[in-house]
Amino acid sequence: MIMPCAVGVDIGGTHFRLAVVDETGQYGIIKKFPSESHLGPHKLIDRVVSAVSGVTQEVPETVAGIGVGIAGAVDHIKGVVRFSPNLPGWDHIPLAEIMEARLGRPVLVDNDADLIAFGEKWRGAGRGYENFLCITLGTGVGGGLILRNEIWHGCGTAGEIGHVTIDRHGARCNCGNYGCLETVASATGLIRMAREGLREGKEGLLAQRITSDPDALSARLVANLARQGDPWALELFAELGKALGVAIASVMNLLCLEAIIIGGGVSEAWDFFIGPFRTEYARRVMPGTRPEVPVLPWALKDAAGIIGAAATIFHKKSNLTVL
């Protein structure tokens, strides 16, 4: 008997990824494509549909459906992307309806960080925990909340820790607010702070690099120079860690969770922000709330959102238990 499978899709501002996943969480080759999000939502949908069609032709008789994760505010019941701060033009786009009509298969759509959390719950660092928060540090900052082994959507968009205010006089965020966690603890936040520091006369390897080649500035460059011991690069990651400490202490004071999982591309610089994070968190968490909560790196890496997206198909189709 051939094991049922699902296609998991993870749509980001720079790239989208997909793979075929079976009911045990095993997955095939992850295929990665440029999003070209500047061309608008419908061009990106065309690219995603084409890529999904390609992989479903390889195992057509066993695909139970397609799970899709995308950054932003998502109505997971209707499959509508209400708003995405890092994807231009995604304003009330009925993504599930469009994809189902073109692919002829069930499509479930949810917030990407929620699905990363669900993937880590099923087959990653979240196994054994009933209640935890998964934070993704990438272009922006996402959050997925697992309560009693299920994604907690609240009335629709719970878990958006990236848009918790940590400084009411802070920088403007892509969401339109000011002082969000995302303005500091993300790739775009690191770049913003680096540019501000350069204008203020900061010196060192990072300053030299971006003065000679402004286009070279990226979160990866900051991380590489932090590994070389550049004081300013290390300072930027310290600020990122402190901002995380402020936000996560507030979450723990409210919910007293069992664990925190941190993933996303920026989390590869773990060693440079985890110390400042722990110090700031300990300063701000209420005594008795879990001052030494487990803070874990994601286990599934780039596969987490894909596996979580596929898991939602199995969960709905056959009541897959995720413990």
Rank of each mutant, 00 (worst) to 15 (best):
G162P: 00
L225Q: 11
L320W: 13
V246P: 04
G275L: 12
I161G: 02
V164T: 14
E258Q: 10
V164K: 09
V293F: 03
S318E: 15
V49F: 11
G204I: 02
P291Y: 15
P276T: 06
E200A: 10
P4E: 08
G156C: 08
G144M: 06
S212F: 13
L190N: 01
K242S: 10
M193S: 07
A309L: 12
G288L: 02
R102D: 06
N253L: 04
F118G: 01
E36V: 15
I77P: 13
I66S: 09
V295W: 01
P287M: 01
A259R: 04
V9G: 10
I274V: 12
G138V: 03
H38M: 13
G40S: 09
V63W: 07
C173Q: 09
A71M: 09
I151N: 05
E280M: 10
T139K: 08
T279V: 15
F16H: 09
G65W: 04
G308N: 11
V322I: 14
P106V: 07
V251C: 01
V164I: 12
R123N: 10
T24I: 12
L206S: 08
A249L: 04
S212M: 13
V20W: 13
R105A: 08
K317V: 15
G65K: 03
E203D: 12
G8I: 06
L300N: 05
Y178S: 04
G204H: 07
V52K: 06
G8F: 09
P34C: 08
A259E: 08
D46Q: 14
A238V: 00
V184Y: 10
T188S: 05
S53K: 15
C175E: 00
E23T: 14
G170K: 02
A269Y: 01
G138M: 01
G79A: 00
R127T: 15
E268M: 07
M286P: 09
N319S: 14
W122V: 04
Q26G: 15
P297R: 12
F273S: 11
G54P: 14
C134P: 07
A303T: 04
G265H: 01
D112I: 02
W90R: 01
Q26S: 15
V285K: 09
H315T: 14
V222P: 00
A310E: 00
L296D: 05
G241D: 05
F83E: 03
R284F: 03
R192D: 11
A304S: 14
R283F: 09
A310M: 02
Y27V: 10
G79S: 00
A113R: 02
F272G: 07
E268T: 06
S35P: 11
T136N: 00
A113I: 02
S53Q: 15
A238N: 08
A117F: 00
L244C: 02
S35V: 10
L225A: 08
H15G: 11
A238L: 07
P294L: 03
R195H: 09
V295S: 02
E268S: 11
R209A: 13
V48Q: 11
D110V: 05
P214F: 05
V52H: 02
V222R: 12
S84V: 03
Q57A: 14
G79E: 02
G89M: 01
V295G: 03
A19L: 05
Q208L: 13
C173T: 02
T321G: 02
N149G: 13
S37F: 06
P94S: 01
L296K: 12
G159D: 04
T139R: 11
N253F: 07
